[in-house]
Design a protein around this nucleic acid. Structure first.
Length: 415
RNA sequence: CUCCUAUGAGUCC
């Protein structure tokens, strides 16, 4: 079993889950008894490949065969469940554990903070302490980040003070708060935290600066953003792709495409590679300024240089073309998404359906939705609203009513 | 050996 496990581990790490499963089957057939590690490895494999269901099945099989999963195996499964937002199931796994460790709590609290209720996370934090584990700054930072997301700054600050008292706060702690305040449109308080962290001798990093710059840009304070950028450079930090993209976004929002394009040049010059976020931001900015042609050319340009746009970048172009009334070309982008091996997502469909409906091509929109609903049962309220609007605009009330009926039939909720 | 915490992009409303 030991050698098999080694091999299994290698297969799983190389993402050859199918081969790993085959080996597992062979083990069973040839009478090589798997042990607890065998399952831990397989469950980790399923978990890493995003197949929670498989991980759960493995887990059940393991228990049916009389193995008691150890703490680590439980942790792996819980991690997988948390990543898929199945918090209830993760908590159920937790309930049946008879031995936990620090990772157990870190995993769960992280999952609950991300997708569950804060109150539950706080309960777990208490339980963590009473089980004899000292909550690390890792887990406390997770909770602070959640409070910030909820704009519960009072709670976040209480935790910060506690961490400061213990001397356990770090750059992540401060950056979470800075970002939270920025997103809550409280730039002043974000700056206060920034000054506080510096005065306490905690060094900011790129993430800190990027969060601040983004906050300033989104509050239309481009000049201040620029000042922070200068401070960042002066202190010896290299602006990275996020820094540039945040600034590009800022310029785009102000309609200053010249500035945005100059930033693109600058980053290329400095050897900082733009990514899909950068390009989709620029494309979107160009489209919003009715410079769809340039957006389209930008897309062609990056593709011809070997860059692989993702579904968001394509959709940004598709939407621009739709809004410019160039529906045939939008259709070609849609096809290209599929040809590139990508999946059009709900936003892609929404953009295209909306574009078709608003340009008198409701029939094509209806076809598109029909095609979509071969893959998913219900396209969604917003798509149906667009269809109904389109039909009404064309005075096709009976069909609109029929679409409404379909929508309700599929569980949609008309507003 | 398992958790890996903080920053940027697209649609409709």
């Amino acid at each position: 079993a030991y050698s098999c496990n080694c091999l299994l581990g290698t297969l799983v790490n190389k993402k050859h889950l199918d081969k790993a499963l085959e080996l597992y089957m062979q083990m069973m057939h040839r009478g090589v008894l798997p042990n607890g590690s065998t399952y831990a490895i397989l469950i980790r494999g399923f978990s890493k490949s995003g197949n929670v269901k498989g991980a759960c099945e493995m887990f059940d099989e393991m228990r049916e065969l009389g193995f008691r999963p150890d703490t680590m195996t439980h942790n792996v499964l819980m991690g997988a469940l948390c990543r898929e937002r199945h918090i209830r199931d993760a908590l159920r796994v937790f309930e049946m554990m008879d031995a936990t460790n620090e990772v157990t709590f870190n995993t769960l609290i992280h999952g609950v903070c991300k997708y569950g209720k804060v109150s539950r996370a706080l309960e777990l934090l208490k339980e963590m302490s009473s089980s004899g584990f000292n909550p690390s700054s890792f887990v406390l930072n997770t909770i602070i980040a959640r409070h910030c997301r909820d704009r519960e700054f009072r709670e976040a600050l209480i935790l910060l003070r506690k961490m400061q008292a213990a001397g356990s706060e770090d750059v992540v702690t401060y950056t979470s708060l800075i970002d939270g305040f920025c997103k809550g449109k409280q730039i002043q308080r974000a700056l206060e935290i920034y000054r506080e962290m510096v005065s306490k001798g905690c060094s900011p990093n790129n993430v800190t600066f990027n969060a601040l710059i983004d906050g300033l840009c989104k509050s239309s304070k481009l000049e201040d953003a620029h000042r922070v950028l200068e401070e960042m450079v002066m202190k010896g930090y290299q602006p990275d792709v996020v820094t540039y993209t945040v600034l590009v976004h800022g310029f785009c929002e102000q309609g200053r495409l010249d500035g945005a394009l100059r930033l693109l040049e600058m980053m290329l010059q400095k050897g900082c590679a733009p990514d899909n976020v950068t390009y989709s931001t620029l494309i979107c900015g160009l489209c919003k300024e009715s410079r769809v042609q340039e957006a389209f050319e930008l897309l062609e340009g990056i593709v011809s240089r070997g860059f692989a746009p993702n579904v968001i970048t394509f959709t940004a172009v598709l939407d621009g073309l739709c809004k410019g009334g160039r529906l045939a070309e939008a259709g070609r982008i849609f096809d290209r998404i599929v040809e590139s091996g990508l999946q059009p997502d709900e936003v892609t469909y929404m953009a295209f359906v909306d574009g078709l409906c608003k340009h008198g091509q409701v029939d094509r929109a209806l076809e598109l939705v029909e095609q979509l609903e071969k893959q998913v049962f219900f396209a969604g309220d917003h798509i149906y609203l667009a269809l109904i609007n389109g039909l009404c605009t064309e005075q096709r009330r009976d069909e609109a009513l029929e679409v409404l009926r379909q929508m309700v039939l599929k569980g949609g909720v008309p507003n």
